[in-house]
Design a protein around this nucleic acid. Structure first.
Lengths: 214, 214
DNA sequence: ACGCGTCCGGAGGGGAACATTCCGGTTCGG
DNA sequence: CCGAACCGGAATGTTCCCCTCCGGACGCGT
């Protein structure tokens, strides 16, 4: 197991807390909030992670891994392409998946570790496989791109000020509402589908005009 | 016309810029950014609006009025209940409606003007009328509440880092994707529908643990 | 042309927030 | 009981931003 992964309970608590805080408040959230939620001191976080940026990277690695697991699990358990997609999406929107952290490689992918970039690529190709399979089976409208699925994830992840369990409940509620629309293409989708590159650019953070430099 | 509404070009430019900046970056966005986008100096903004809070209030008033107009327009132009709802939703998601500003009465409704509260009430009752009519006509699933419509608006308004025209295009794209799901209730919606009060609480801002006091 | 009043844009003061570090206390093993 | 490892929270130095102040530009009446 890589040394960069959480290994102790302590680490897991910190990563989990950081996942919650970052997905809810964005990268601008203060470290002290993460410490409070994890029930530890600020220094304990800095003792394991040299900087906030590094902590965020570890969170993204954990979340991306989790999404990859969801995709593989869906592919393994279901045989109908539509059911694969369906299970995958519900899986991604369950509690504590951190789906919100896999989309925005804040400020571009520069400065990210090899490991995260590799995981990202793997995740994207899995999603593309799932989407393409469903489309070839005629169970998913053809004018939907794989990147659209991630935009949907982003849409279903608004930063609502409730606890994560209620948010997960709402995500499931609205996914259920949206899913039928993915099948029938009675009205063609207007607008250009987003490309991966555009998605990456669009998801870059911007709560504040961004003042990070290094 | 009330004295609190924008009357000159100058005011309109400022309000429009503030709408864009606030909806994209949240209330935490710096005033200087609004000034830059409006092409005016910071002092010119403070010359008309005593504080940032007051400026935000005027933006909300303008946006809420706009949404009310969309609702009344939809009711006037369409006779089929479903078409009313459909036109209303597309109208709200067009460019520059500022739909993102009508939801979050940051930090609760305390301290808001009578005028805004009255507009808010009017907007809510119009939406409830539209939703109820569509449900009574059997064209909208019955397990959807009016508050759900606003949650959908929030979902369709993620802060994407693109220009407003592209964002509007994407909003239309995903609304088209979602709309069919509002009619057929083949699978009942899981989770509790949000109440107005919960919606209000959930939409309160939280990019930073919130440090506004007065 | 020339004051004078009006209005504007940008620099600056004062205060708050936050990333990161330092320090005194506490626990656990021997 | 002593020491080392570890922890939580206070302290530090910097950055950011709301809001105010000031010097300049423009228009108009004379």
């Amino acid at each position: 197991m890589p040394t960069t992964r959480p290994t102790t309970d302590y680490d897991e608590r910190v990563i989990a807390a950081a996942r919650e805080v970052f997905t809810q408040y964005g990268f601008a959230a203060p470290i002290s909030e993460i410490a409070r939620l994890a029930g530890v001191g600020v220094a304990s976080i800095y003792r394991r992670y040299p900087s906030k940026r590094e902590l965020a990277e570890q969170v993204r690695i954990a979340s991306t891994s989790r999404i990859i697991e969801e995709a593989e699990d869906a592919l393994a358990r279901e045989s109908e392409p539509w059911e694969v997609l369906r299970r995958f999406m519900y899986g991604c929107l369950r509690e504590h998946t951190g789906i919100g952290m896999v989309l925005p490689p804040h400020g571009g992918c520069e400065g990210f570790s090899e490991e995260l970039l590799r995981l990202r690529g793997r995740m994207i190709s899995l999603v593309e496989r799932i989407v393409t399979a469903a489309q070839e089976a005629g169970e998913l409208r053809a004018d939907l791109r794989a990147a659209d699925v991630f935009v949907l994830f982003k849409h279903l992840n608004p930063p609502l000020a409730t606890d994560e369990s209620r948010r997960a409940e709402l995500r499931a509620r609205y996914l259920t509402l949206v899913l039928p629309g993915l099948r029938e293409a009675s009205v063609p989708l207007p607008g250009q589908a987003p490309e991966w590159e555009e998605l990456r650019r669009m998801c870059e953070e911007g709560p504040t005009p961004d003042h990070s430099k290094e």
